[in-house]
Amino acid sequence: ALGGQARAEGERTEELLEPNTWEEVTSYCNFYEFGTGKGDPSKYADRMTIEPWSVTIDGLVEKPGEYSFDQILGEMTLEERIYRFRCVEAWSMVVPWQGFELADLLNLAEVQDGAKYVAFETLYRPAEMPGTVYKVLDWPYREGLRLDEAMHPLTIMATGIFGKPLPNQNGAPLRLVVPWKYGFKSIKSVVRITLTDAEPPTSWNMANPREYGFYSNVNPDVSHPRWSQATERRIGGGLFARRRPTLMFNGYEDEVAALYEDMDLSEYF
């Protein structure tokens, strides 16, 4: 019932959302494995081999193993989701994704009762990733979700944008998208998904726990220590665009606030 309701809400907001352009979405990316400049991923990510691709699903699941990308696609139903995308750096976009619900993939591997968290890992292949020469972060890039967040119907694994396969710089061939969290939670080019009973270590949190929490829900009331999160700049507005107010949970409050009912969101930021 919750799933149906969430989708209806999602559709209502989608009508108001004007997607960004292909150029905007594919030329302005953070994918530090290819460099820290916003243009680096679109310049260098084509060096990444994405065929063949498989995702190892392990940990607390009944059917652990290597799932090939084609095998996964064969089992999943793709649908379009137009989501707001809010970066922790206070810029935002609207992206038309294609993908499937992460819950469907996790159900395929059959999550065991004891699992409480899901850990994700990005491909780490230094020969194809010039940015990994520098220890900007502790590679491979890692992210994580609580199991109920991972099973939420808004949480998807994306395989495409604008009706086309994901470009490498956007996390080909398969990436997570969690629309109510800051963009860095939506880990790209996923090669491993591990179900665990303890909160997994996550890259930005390891690099700077004061600035990047495990939850990292979009929240206009909780500042990043170095900048305010109250407003954001929508990419594509040009030099004179006004900032717009950032929405609680990036505008998905009705759908996800219940996940955090008893939590102090400034403590679990």
Binding site: S27, Y28, G39, W91, G236, G238, L239, A241
Partner: peptide, 18 residues
Amino acid sequence: LFYLGLTGGLGVEPVRAL
């Protein structure tokens, strides 16, 4: 640089770039 920012020469997020 200001002209580039106005005309798209600094990418899709010209404010930060400038």
